[in-house]
Design a protein around this nucleic acid. Structure first.
Lengths: 189, 189
DNA sequence: GTCAAAAGATTCGAGCACTAATCATTTGAG
DNA sequence: CTCAAATGATTAGTGCTCGAATCTTTTGAC
Protein backbone atom coordinates (compact mmCIF):
# COMPACT_ATOMS: atom_id res chain seq x y z
CA UNK A 1 0.00 0.00 0.00
CA UNK A 2 2.56 2.49 1.02
CA UNK A 3 5.51 3.35 -1.11
CA UNK A 4 7.83 0.50 -1.66
CA UNK A 5 10.17 2.56 -3.71
CA UNK A 6 10.76 5.71 -1.80
CA UNK A 7 14.11 6.17 -3.35
CA UNK A 8 13.59 7.67 -6.68
CA UNK A 9 11.54 10.71 -6.87
CA UNK A 10 11.92 13.60 -4.54
CA UNK A 11 15.35 14.98 -4.81
CA UNK A 12 16.21 15.69 -8.33
CA UNK A 13 19.92 15.60 -7.76
CA UNK A 14 21.32 13.42 -10.44
CA UNK A 15 24.60 13.21 -8.67
CA UNK A 16 25.28 9.51 -8.71
CA UNK A 17 26.20 8.86 -5.12
CA UNK A 18 25.27 12.07 -3.28
CA UNK A 19 26.02 11.12 0.28
CA UNK A 20 24.23 14.12 1.70
CA UNK A 21 21.06 13.29 -0.13
CA UNK A 22 21.24 9.75 1.09
CA UNK A 23 21.78 10.97 4.62
CA UNK A 24 18.91 13.39 4.57
CA UNK A 25 16.58 10.89 3.05
CA UNK A 26 17.56 8.25 5.57
CA UNK A 27 16.87 10.65 8.39
CA UNK A 28 13.38 11.32 7.13
CA UNK A 29 12.67 7.65 6.89
CA UNK A 30 14.02 7.00 10.34
CA UNK A 31 11.73 9.65 11.71
CA UNK A 32 8.79 8.06 9.99
CA UNK A 33 9.73 4.60 11.18
CA UNK A 34 10.02 5.79 14.76
CA UNK A 35 6.62 7.37 14.53
CA UNK A 36 5.01 4.31 13.04
CA UNK A 37 6.59 2.16 15.66
CA UNK A 38 5.20 4.37 18.37
CA UNK A 39 1.70 4.07 16.94
CA UNK A 40 1.99 0.33 16.90
CA UNK A 41 3.08 0.37 20.50
CA UNK A 42 0.03 2.49 21.22
CA UNK A 43 -2.48 0.10 19.74
CA UNK A 44 -0.80 -2.87 21.37
CA UNK A 45 -0.14 -1.44 24.81
CA UNK A 46 -2.04 1.79 25.25
CA UNK A 47 1.13 3.77 25.57
CA UNK A 48 3.27 5.64 23.07
CA UNK A 49 7.03 5.82 22.88
CA UNK A 50 7.22 9.37 24.21
CA UNK A 51 4.92 8.46 27.05
CA UNK A 52 6.98 5.41 27.90
CA UNK A 53 10.20 7.37 27.80
CA UNK A 54 8.77 9.98 30.13
CA UNK A 55 7.37 7.35 32.45
CA UNK A 56 10.80 5.79 32.72
CA UNK A 57 12.33 9.16 33.38
CA UNK A 58 9.89 9.79 36.21
CA UNK A 59 10.65 6.42 37.72
CA UNK A 60 14.35 7.15 37.79
CA UNK A 61 14.28 10.21 39.98
CA UNK A 62 11.03 9.53 41.60
CA UNK A 63 10.05 12.66 43.21
CA UNK A 64 10.63 14.13 39.79
CA UNK A 65 9.86 17.55 38.40
CA UNK A 66 8.48 18.30 34.97
CA UNK A 67 11.57 20.26 34.12
CA UNK A 68 13.83 17.39 35.15
CA UNK A 69 11.91 14.98 33.00
CA UNK A 70 12.04 17.35 30.06
CA UNK A 71 15.75 17.72 30.40
CA UNK A 72 16.42 14.04 30.72
CA UNK A 73 14.38 13.08 27.67
CA UNK A 74 15.54 16.00 25.50
CA UNK A 75 12.14 17.56 24.97
CA UNK A 76 10.76 20.97 25.76
CA UNK A 77 8.86 21.36 28.98
CA UNK A 78 5.75 22.29 27.03
CA UNK A 79 5.84 18.96 25.28
CA UNK A 80 6.45 17.05 28.45
CA UNK A 81 3.55 18.75 30.20
CA UNK A 82 1.23 17.41 27.54
CA UNK A 83 2.64 13.93 27.83
CA UNK A 84 2.36 14.02 31.61
CA UNK A 85 -1.25 15.12 31.26
CA UNK A 86 -1.96 12.00 29.28
CA UNK A 87 -0.02 9.78 31.66
CA UNK A 88 -1.91 11.25 34.55
CA UNK A 89 -5.27 10.76 32.93
CA UNK A 90 -4.36 7.14 32.35
CA UNK A 91 -3.56 6.81 36.01
CA UNK A 92 0.11 6.05 35.51
CA UNK A 93 1.59 9.07 37.25
CA UNK A 94 0.40 11.34 40.02
CA UNK A 95 1.04 15.07 40.38
CA UNK A 96 1.42 16.71 43.73
CA UNK A 97 2.29 20.27 44.60
CA UNK A 98 5.45 20.51 46.65
CA UNK A 99 4.63 21.91 50.05
CA UNK A 100 7.89 23.67 50.79
CA UNK A 101 8.24 25.33 47.39
CA UNK A 102 4.82 25.65 45.94
CA UNK A 103 6.10 26.44 42.48
CA UNK A 104 7.29 22.92 41.93
CA UNK A 105 5.16 19.89 41.22
CA UNK A 106 6.31 16.47 42.36
CA UNK A 107 5.70 13.56 40.06
CA UNK A 108 5.18 10.03 41.34
CA UNK A 109 4.39 6.75 39.72
CA UNK A 110 1.10 5.17 40.64
CA UNK A 111 1.04 1.44 41.35
CA UNK A 112 -0.12 0.90 37.78
CA UNK A 113 2.66 3.09 36.52
CA UNK A 114 5.20 1.18 38.54
CA UNK A 115 3.84 -2.10 37.28
CA UNK A 116 4.13 -0.90 33.72
CA UNK A 117 7.69 0.24 34.21
CA UNK A 118 8.66 -3.12 35.59
CA UNK A 119 7.24 -5.10 32.73
CA UNK A 120 7.98 -2.39 30.25
CA UNK A 121 8.21 -3.21 26.58
CA UNK A 122 11.88 -2.38 26.24
CA UNK A 123 13.00 1.20 26.47
CA UNK A 124 12.27 2.42 23.01
CA UNK A 125 12.33 0.35 19.99
CA UNK A 126 11.24 -3.07 20.95
CA UNK A 127 12.23 -5.35 18.16
CA UNK A 128 14.61 -2.76 16.74
CA UNK A 129 16.71 -3.14 19.83
CA UNK A 130 16.79 -6.85 19.20
CA UNK A 131 17.81 -6.35 15.62
CA UNK A 132 20.61 -4.11 16.66
CA UNK A 133 21.81 -6.51 19.29
CA UNK A 134 22.10 -9.21 16.69
CA UNK A 135 24.50 -7.14 14.61
CA UNK A 136 28.21 -7.69 15.04
CA UNK A 137 29.53 -5.55 17.82
CA UNK A 138 31.84 -3.50 15.68
CA UNK A 139 29.00 -2.63 13.38
CA UNK A 140 26.90 -1.58 16.34
CA UNK A 141 29.60 0.83 17.30
CA UNK A 142 30.13 2.22 13.87
CA UNK A 143 26.43 2.88 13.57
CA UNK A 144 26.37 4.57 16.93
CA UNK A 145 29.38 6.65 16.00
CA UNK A 146 27.88 7.70 12.70
CA UNK A 147 24.62 8.74 14.27
CA UNK A 148 26.38 10.67 16.94
CA UNK A 149 28.41 12.38 14.30
CA UNK A 150 25.21 13.52 12.67
CA UNK A 151 23.82 14.64 15.99
CA UNK A 152 26.93 16.67 16.53
CA UNK A 153 26.64 18.35 13.18
CA UNK A 154 22.98 19.07 13.61
CA UNK A 155 23.24 20.42 17.07
CA UNK A 156 26.17 22.57 16.10
CA UNK A 157 23.95 23.79 13.30
CA UNK A 158 21.44 24.90 15.82
CA UNK A 159 23.93 27.09 17.55
CA UNK A 160 26.15 28.43 14.83
CA UNK A 161 23.75 28.85 12.02
CA UNK A 162 21.04 30.57 13.95
CA UNK A 163 22.17 34.15 13.34
CA UNK A 164 22.94 33.45 9.72
CA UNK A 165 19.59 31.97 9.05
CA UNK A 166 17.68 34.61 10.85
CA UNK A 167 18.06 37.23 8.18
CA UNK A 168 17.72 34.72 5.43
CA UNK A 169 19.09 35.46 2.01
CA UNK A 170 16.63 33.10 0.43
CA UNK A 171 13.97 35.58 -0.50
CA UNK A 172 12.16 34.65 -3.70
CA UNK A 173 11.83 38.28 -4.60
CA UNK A 174 8.17 38.93 -5.26
CA UNK A 175 8.19 42.60 -5.96
CA UNK A 176 5.38 43.87 -8.16
CA UNK A 177 2.47 41.80 -7.05
CA UNK A 178 1.63 40.52 -10.45
CA UNK A 179 -0.29 37.57 -9.13
CA UNK A 180 -3.75 37.52 -7.71
CA UNK A 181 -3.39 38.11 -4.03
CA UNK A 182 -0.02 39.54 -3.20
CA UNK A 183 -0.65 40.59 0.34
CA UNK A 184 -0.79 37.26 1.98
CA UNK A 185 1.41 37.00 4.99
CA UNK A 186 4.12 35.63 2.80
CA UNK A 187 5.92 38.88 2.32
CA UNK A 188 9.20 37.16 2.16
CA UNK A 189 12.02 39.58 1.64
CA UNK B 1 22.87 21.70 30.40
CA UNK B 2 21.14 18.68 29.12
CA UNK B 3 22.10 15.38 30.52
CA UNK B 4 25.56 14.82 29.34
CA UNK B 5 25.51 11.23 30.44
CA UNK B 6 24.11 9.62 27.38
CA UNK B 7 24.09 6.21 28.89
CA UNK B 8 22.73 6.52 32.32
CA UNK B 9 19.47 8.22 32.51
CA UNK B 10 16.68 6.83 30.48
CA UNK B 11 17.59 3.31 29.68
CA UNK B 12 18.21 0.95 32.50
CA UNK B 13 20.56 -1.36 30.67
CA UNK B 14 23.76 -1.70 32.57
CA UNK B 15 25.64 -3.02 29.58
CA UNK B 16 28.98 -1.21 29.72
CA UNK B 17 29.09 0.55 26.39
CA UNK B 18 25.58 -0.18 25.15
CA UNK B 19 25.70 0.62 21.49
CA UNK B 20 21.98 0.23 21.16
CA UNK B 21 21.36 2.80 23.82
CA UNK B 22 23.65 5.21 22.07
CA UNK B 23 21.88 4.56 18.80
CA UNK B 24 18.42 5.07 20.17
CA UNK B 25 19.40 8.18 21.99
CA UNK B 26 21.08 9.60 18.92
CA UNK B 27 17.96 8.95 16.87
CA UNK B 28 15.82 10.89 19.29
CA UNK B 29 18.21 13.81 19.21
CA UNK B 30 18.32 13.76 15.45
CA UNK B 31 14.56 13.92 15.32
CA UNK B 32 14.59 16.87 17.63
CA UNK B 33 17.30 18.63 15.66
CA UNK B 34 15.40 18.18 12.43
CA UNK B 35 12.33 19.68 14.00
CA UNK B 36 14.19 22.63 15.43
CA UNK B 37 15.81 23.26 12.12
CA UNK B 38 12.46 23.28 10.43
CA UNK B 39 11.18 25.85 12.86
CA UNK B 40 14.15 28.04 12.18
CA UNK B 41 13.54 27.73 8.48
CA UNK B 42 9.99 28.81 9.15
CA UNK B 43 10.87 32.00 10.96
CA UNK B 44 13.51 32.84 8.39
CA UNK B 45 11.68 31.93 5.21
CA UNK B 46 8.01 31.42 5.99
CA UNK B 47 8.22 27.82 4.96
CA UNK B 48 8.87 24.63 6.88
CA UNK B 49 10.90 21.65 5.82
CA UNK B 50 7.89 19.43 5.12
CA UNK B 51 6.31 22.21 3.10
CA UNK B 52 9.47 22.73 1.12
CA UNK B 53 9.85 19.04 0.46
CA UNK B 54 6.28 18.83 -0.79
CA UNK B 55 6.69 21.92 -2.90
CA UNK B 56 9.70 20.35 -4.57
CA UNK B 57 7.77 17.16 -5.15
CA UNK B 58 4.97 19.08 -6.83
CA UNK B 59 7.43 20.86 -9.05
CA UNK B 60 8.92 17.59 -10.22
CA UNK B 61 5.82 16.08 -11.73
CA UNK B 62 3.97 19.23 -12.25
CA UNK B 63 0.50 18.26 -12.91
CA UNK B 64 0.88 16.34 -9.68
CA UNK B 65 -1.66 14.54 -7.58
CA UNK B 66 -1.84 14.55 -3.82
CA UNK B 67 -1.29 10.81 -3.75
CA UNK B 68 1.79 11.11 -5.96
CA UNK B 69 3.26 13.73 -3.71
CA UNK B 70 2.56 11.64 -0.63
CA UNK B 71 4.24 8.66 -2.15
CA UNK B 72 7.27 10.56 -3.28
CA UNK B 73 7.90 12.20 0.08
CA UNK B 74 7.13 9.12 2.17
CA UNK B 75 4.21 10.59 4.08
CA UNK B 76 0.58 9.60 4.34
CA UNK B 77 -1.86 11.35 2.06
CA UNK B 78 -3.67 12.79 5.03
CA UNK B 79 -0.52 14.51 6.14
CA UNK B 80 0.19 15.81 2.70
CA UNK B 81 -3.31 17.21 2.34
CA UNK B 82 -2.71 19.37 5.36
CA UNK B 83 0.62 20.56 4.05
CA UNK B 84 -0.90 21.33 0.67
CA UNK B 85 -3.63 23.31 2.39
CA UNK B 86 -1.00 25.52 3.94
CA UNK B 87 0.97 25.82 0.73
CA UNK B 88 -2.20 26.80 -1.08
CA UNK B 89 -3.16 29.39 1.48
CA UNK B 90 0.29 30.88 1.10
CA UNK B 91 -0.27 31.09 -2.62
CA UNK B 92 2.54 28.71 -3.52
CA UNK B 93 0.48 25.95 -5.12
CA UNK B 94 -2.83 25.87 -6.90
CA UNK B 95 -5.42 23.08 -6.83
CA UNK B 96 -7.61 22.29 -9.78
CA UNK B 97 -10.10 19.53 -10.30
CA UNK B 98 -9.20 17.33 -13.21
CA UNK B 99 -11.88 17.61 -15.86
CA UNK B 100 -11.64 14.17 -17.36
CA UNK B 101 -11.58 12.31 -14.06
CA UNK B 102 -13.22 14.46 -11.49
CA UNK B 103 -11.91 12.43 -8.58
CA UNK B 104 -8.43 13.70 -9.30
CA UNK B 105 -7.06 17.05 -8.22
CA UNK B 106 -4.21 18.53 -10.20
CA UNK B 107 -1.55 20.46 -8.37
CA UNK B 108 0.41 23.29 -9.95
CA UNK B 109 2.99 25.69 -8.72
CA UNK B 110 2.01 29.33 -8.74
CA UNK B 111 4.55 31.84 -10.01
CA UNK B 112 5.51 32.50 -6.42
CA UNK B 113 5.85 28.81 -5.80
CA UNK B 114 8.05 28.42 -8.82
CA UNK B 115 10.19 31.31 -7.76
CA UNK B 116 10.62 29.83 -4.32
CA UNK B 117 11.61 26.47 -5.78
CA UNK B 118 14.25 28.09 -7.93
CA UNK B 119 15.89 29.95 -5.13
CA UNK B 120 15.10 27.27 -2.61
CA UNK B 121 17.19 26.94 0.53
CA UNK B 122 18.69 23.55 -0.29
CA UNK B 123 16.48 20.52 -0.22
CA UNK B 124 16.33 19.94 3.45
CA UNK B 125 18.91 20.89 5.90
CA UNK B 126 20.50 24.04 4.73
CA UNK B 127 23.65 24.42 6.71
CA UNK B 128 23.65 20.79 7.73
CA UNK B 129 24.19 19.91 4.12
CA UNK B 130 27.15 22.22 4.12
CA UNK B 131 28.57 20.64 7.22
CA UNK B 132 28.27 17.23 5.70
CA UNK B 133 29.90 18.32 2.49
CA UNK B 134 32.90 19.49 4.40
CA UNK B 135 33.48 16.06 5.87
CA UNK B 136 35.91 13.71 4.19
CA UNK B 137 34.16 11.75 1.50
CA UNK B 138 34.70 8.39 3.07
CA UNK B 139 33.15 9.58 6.26
CA UNK B 140 30.18 10.90 4.34
CA UNK B 141 29.65 7.48 2.94
CA UNK B 142 30.09 5.66 6.19
CA UNK B 143 27.51 7.92 7.77
CA UNK B 144 25.11 7.35 4.94
CA UNK B 145 25.66 3.63 5.13
CA UNK B 146 25.09 3.56 8.86
CA UNK B 147 21.87 5.50 8.60
CA UNK B 148 20.61 3.33 5.82
CA UNK B 149 21.45 0.32 7.87
CA UNK B 150 19.23 1.67 10.61
CA UNK B 151 16.50 2.48 8.15
CA UNK B 152 16.64 -1.06 6.92
CA UNK B 153 16.34 -2.48 10.39
CA UNK B 154 13.51 -0.19 11.31
CA UNK B 155 11.51 -0.71 8.20
CA UNK B 156 11.98 -4.44 8.46
CA UNK B 157 10.66 -4.05 11.96
CA UNK B 158 7.55 -2.48 10.59
CA UNK B 159 6.85 -5.45 8.40
CA UNK B 160 7.99 -8.39 10.44
CA UNK B 161 7.00 -7.27 13.86
CA UNK B 162 3.58 -6.04 12.94
CA UNK B 163 1.67 -9.29 13.34
CA UNK B 164 3.56 -10.16 16.47
CA UNK B 165 2.89 -6.83 18.06
CA UNK B 166 -0.71 -6.65 17.06
CA UNK B 167 -1.97 -9.16 19.56
CA UNK B 168 -0.40 -7.86 22.67
CA UNK B 169 2.37 -9.92 24.16
CA UNK B 170 5.56 -8.03 24.12
CA UNK B 171 9.11 -9.17 24.13
CA UNK B 172 10.57 -7.71 27.28
CA UNK B 173 14.14 -7.68 26.03
CA UNK B 174 15.38 -6.78 29.46
CA UNK B 175 17.56 -9.40 31.04
CA UNK B 176 20.14 -8.83 28.42
CA UNK B 177 21.51 -12.26 29.03
CA UNK B 178 19.88 -15.30 27.65
CA UNK B 179 16.62 -15.44 29.49
CA UNK B 180 14.02 -14.80 26.89
CA UNK B 181 11.45 -14.34 29.59
CA UNK B 182 8.06 -15.55 28.44
CA UNK B 183 5.62 -12.89 27.44
CA UNK B 184 4.48 -10.62 30.16
CA UNK B 185 0.91 -9.49 30.15
CA UNK B 186 0.65 -5.86 30.89
CA UNK B 187 -2.92 -4.88 31.15
CA UNK B 188 -2.94 -1.24 31.73
CA UNK B 189 -5.82 1.07 31.25
C1' DG C 1 8.92 45.47 53.96
C1' DT C 2 8.37 46.14 49.07
C1' DC C 3 8.49 45.17 44.58
C1' DA C 4 10.93 43.61 40.47
C1' DA C 5 13.16 39.74 38.66
C1' DA C 6 13.66 34.79 38.45
C1' DA C 7 11.97 30.21 38.46
C1' DG C 8 8.66 26.67 37.75
C1' DA C 9 4.52 24.96 35.68
C1' DT C 10 1.11 25.56 32.55
C1' DT C 11 -1.68 27.31 28.55
C1' DC C 12 -2.09 28.87 23.74
C1' DG C 13 -1.59 28.61 18.93
C1' DA C 14 0.41 26.41 15.08
C1' DG C 15 2.28 22.65 12.38
C1' DC C 16 3.14 17.76 11.49
C1' DA C 17 1.87 12.94 11.47
C1' DC C 18 -1.00 9.04 11.64
C1' DT C 19 -5.39 5.88 11.17
C1' DA C 20 -10.09 5.53 10.31
C1' DA C 21 -14.13 7.32 8.38
C1' DT C 22 -16.46 9.94 4.71
C1' DC C 23 -17.68 11.87 0.21
C1' DA C 24 -17.58 11.99 -4.73
C1' DT C 25 -16.61 9.78 -8.80
C1' DT C 26 -15.47 6.11 -11.83
C1' DT C 27 -15.28 1.33 -13.08
C1' DG C 28 -16.88 -3.06 -13.81
C1' DA C 29 -19.73 -7.25 -13.10
C1' DG C 30 -24.30 -8.87 -13.90
C1' DC D 1 -28.41 -0.22 -17.37
C1' DT D 2 -27.59 -0.71 -12.38
C1' DC D 3 -25.43 -0.93 -8.33
C1' DA D 4 -21.50 -2.54 -5.65
C1' DA D 5 -16.66 -2.12 -5.40
C1' DA D 6 -12.59 0.57 -6.23
C1' DT D 7 -10.24 4.92 -6.37
C1' DG D 8 -8.98 9.57 -5.09
C1' DA D 9 -9.38 13.43 -2.02
C1' DT D 10 -10.67 15.01 2.10
C1' DT D 11 -12.24 15.34 7.10
C1' DA D 12 -12.30 13.77 12.05
C1' DG D 13 -9.90 12.70 15.90
C1' DT D 14 -5.62 11.93 18.57
C1' DG D 15 -1.00 12.78 19.78
C1' DC D 16 3.71 14.95 19.53
C1' DT D 17 6.39 19.09 19.19
C1' DC D 18 7.71 23.69 19.64
C1' DG D 19 8.10 28.89 21.03
C1' DA D 20 5.79 32.45 23.17
C1' DA D 21 2.67 34.03 26.57
C1' DT D 22 0.72 33.57 31.33
C1' DC D 23 0.22 32.56 36.16
C1' DT D 24 2.02 31.60 40.68
C1' DT D 25 5.43 31.56 43.92
C1' DT D 26 9.95 32.55 45.59
C1' DT D 27 14.10 35.23 45.85
C1' DG D 28 16.77 39.12 46.23
C1' DA D 29 18.02 44.11 45.91
C1' DC D 30 16.96 48.15 48.05
Amino acid sequence: MVDQQPGVAVLGEQDPAAADTRILRAIRRIIRAVDLHSRKLMTGHQITTPQLVCLLAVSECEPARSSEVAKSVSLSTATVIGILDRLESKGLVRRERNTTDRRVVNLWLTPDGRRLVETAPSPLQDTLAGSIERLPTDEQFSIAAALERVVGLMEADQLDAAPLLESGPIAPSREAGTSAEPTKELSIA
